[in-house]
């Protein structure tokens, strides 16, 4: 009862604080903009903890956040090994290969309007398909280790990046291209100095979509077979042993890695496309 009462009191207090903060005169300051979602997240954690303890939910159904935190602290070495296997070897290498292959392909087919007209609808179509289903096939071809995961990631990120890059290469306006022609710029010069920079907002849009896809691909591919390490492997085996605190710990690591990866790409975007209206805004 104490737990439940405490939860209700904390929730009401946090809600009142947030409502007050977001209607207060300082609501435009960055401190408040950061504090309000932080208080909301903290409230969820406290309510979670309190409900699990107050209602006596067994930890095989939902472990409290403190238990998950303790598990993260006590098994950092396992989490690190899994992180390296899944994220660095699987997701990151596949991401780099898939994205660079997609950008290069886009530049190649960009020279032929015929190919572009054919490949763009097909690429759009394939980008909407459940490509994750190729995971069992690629695991069969490339073995259980990280190579097959990287292959799944390549298959997943290729088409979104390709489609975005092709669109981006068409983004410079005719006037600018004519200007390049009046300077008798070669194809390569136009590409490097005008069309690739103009395509960057589109390319980064594709790259940002691909960060999430890469991590999902690497994790789900491990459900179909993996060596005895890796986030997907750990999640599926620990679920089988009902050690849910470990599963939540892996999910927390995956969430952190995913957000950090996305954040890094977004930072790179800001550095590269500083001239674009969407970046100059605030």
């Amino acid at each position: 009862m104490i737990w439940l009462g405490g939860v209700a009191a904390f929730w009401a207090a946090a809600l009142a604080l947030n409502v007050w903060l977001s209607n207060s005169p300082w609501r435009r300051t960055w401190a408040v903009r950061l504090a309000v979602p932080a208080i909301f997240g903290l409230t969820i954690l406290v309510v979670w903890e309190g409900l699990v303890r107050g209602l006596g939910v067994p930890s095989v159904i939902l472990p409290p956040p403190t238990a998950i935190g303790a598990r993260i602290a006590s098994s950092t070495s396992i989490l690190w090994v899994d992180f390296v296997q899944t994220f660095v070897k699987g997701a990151l290498s596949g991401y780099v290969m898939g994205c660079s292959a997609a950008v290069l392909t886009a530049i190649l087919i960009d020279r032929s309007p015929f190919l572009k007209r054919g490949l763009l609808p097909v690429g759009n179509f394939i980008a909407a398909l459940p490509i994750i289903g190729t995971a069992p096939i690629l695991v069969m071809w490339f073995g259980f280790d990280w190579q097959s995961k990287a292959a799944v990631v390549v298959a997943m990120v290729f088409f979104p990046v390709l489609v975005n890059t092709v669109q981006g290469l068409a983004a410079s306006d005719p006037m600018q291209r004519d200007l390049m022609r009046t300077w008798s710029a070669s194809y390569g010069q136009t590409l490097l100095k005008l069309r690739l920079p103009a395509a960057m907002p589109f390319i980064f849009n594709g790259l940002k979509i691909a960060t999430t896809l890469a991590l999902i691909g690497a994790i789900v591919a491990e459900f179909f077979g993996s060596p005895i390490r890796g986030m997907g492997f750990r999640i599926s085996t620990e679920v089988g042993r009902l050690a849910l605190d470990m599963v939540w710990a892996e999910i927390a690591v995956a969430a952190l890695a995913g957000s950090a990866f996305y954040g890094l790409v977004a930072l790179a975007e800001r550095a590269v496309t500083f001239w674009h209206p969407s970046q100059r805004g605030e």
Partner: peptide, 10 residues
């Protein structure tokens, strides 16, 4: 930005 799909088995 989070691989939500990872919690599916759980």
């Amino acid at each position: 930005t989070i691989p939500i799909l990872a919690i599916a088995p759980m």
